[in-house]
């Protein structure tokens, strides 16, 4: 199990039962470190209450959803393959709402 803080904002919180942050224990495959892709899929399968198509498209986030790992753009960390360790924070921010 990996202890991860998942944060949802920019309207995504509405898809996750109005939760802005969840302290999650995410199971990992033995011998492998957890990746952002797995954490995301776990959130979709276990936390999402509404409209999964607004969160993910295929195996990644829907384009327009920003992802940060410990407040760093996931594009700098390896995106889907970025590794998530105990105590890490993964933030999902939708930019798709009006401005």
């Amino acid at each position: 199990m990996v202890k991860v803080r998942l944060e949802f904002s920019g309207g995504l919180d509405l898809l996750f039962g109005n939760q802005k942050a969840v302290e999650a224990d995410i199971p990992q495959q033995s011998g492998h470190q957890l990746t952002v892709a797995e954490a995301m899929a776990w959130a979709r399968d276990n936390l999402l209450t509404d409209r999964p198509e607004l969160f993910m498209k295929g195996s990644s986030v829907r384009p327009g959803v920003l992802v940060l790992l410990n407040d760093t753009d996931w594009e700098l960390c390896g995106e889907l393959d970025a590794l998530v360790a105990d105590g890490d924070r993964v933030t999902f921010i939708s930019t798709l709402h009006g401005g």
């Binding site: 904002s9 509405l14 920003l66 933030t91 921010i93 930019t95 009006g98 401005g99």
Partner: peptide, 25 residues
């Protein structure tokens, strides 16, 4: 848009992000 949202996020700007109830998403 990405940079606007990142700017707001890093600066902790106070904004509102609920969709209009008559045209959700």
């Amino acid at each position: 848009e990405k940079e606007i949202v990142m700017y707001a996020y890093f600066k902790r700007l106070d904004y509102f992000s609920t969709e209009c109830i008559y045209a959700p998403f």
